[in-house]
Simulated assay, not measured.
Amino acid sequence: MRNQQDYLNKASLYDLLAGYYKYSNPSMHIHYYQKHIKYMNLALQAQQREMNLSSQPAYVRVLHAVPDAPSVDIYINANRVLRDVAFKDISDYLTLPAGKYHIDIYPAGTGVNTLISKKVKIEPGKVYTLAAVGTSKKLQLLPYIDDPSVPNGETKIKFIHLSPDAPAVDIGVKGGDTVFPDISFKQATEYLNLTPMTVNLEARIAGTKNTVLDIPGVSLKANQPYTIVAVGFAEGEPGLETLLLKG
Rank of each mutant, 00 (worst) to 15 (best):
L220F: 01
E202D: 06
I215N: 07
I157D: 01
I205C: 06
G153S: 06
G176W: 06
V133W: 05
D73H: 02
D170E: 01
L139K: 04
T135R: 06
L243Q: 09
D170W: 09
Y14G: 00
P67G: 07
L16W: 03
K121P: 00
I145Y: 12
Q48N: 11
Y93R: 01
V218C: 05
D15L: 14
E190D: 15
F233W: 03
P57K: 06
T114L: 08
G109Y: 04
Y39E: 03
P57F: 00
T135A: 04
Q224P: 04
P143L: 03
P216M: 09
S219F: 05
E241H: 12
N223I: 08
K38G: 11
S27I: 12
H31W: 01
N77F: 03
Q56N: 09
K156P: 06
T198C: 06
Y191C: 04
H161R: 08
N3D: 15
I116Q: 02
Y33F: 14
L16G: 13
K158P: 10
S91E: 02
R2I: 03
T114P: 11
G247F: 01
Y32R: 04
A108S: 15
E237M: 14
V150R: 00
Q4V: 07
P67V: 02
P107C: 09
A58L: 09
K209I: 03
Q47W: 04
A166V: 00
P225Y: 00
E202Q: 13
N193L: 11
K35P: 07
N193V: 15
L240R: 05
K88H: 02
D147K: 01
I122R: 09
T178K: 11
P151G: 05
M40E: 14
E202W: 03
Q4E: 15
G153Y: 04
P216N: 06
Y23H: 13
R80N: 12
V62R: 06
N152Y: 14
D146A: 04
V179I: 15
P124Q: 08
G134H: 03
H161T: 06
D177L: 13
A168I: 01
Y20Q: 14
I37A: 13
Y75G: 00
H29Y: 14
L192Y: 05
V120L: 11
N79Y: 10
L220A: 00
P164I: 04
D146I: 07
Q47M: 13
P164Y: 08
K121C: 01
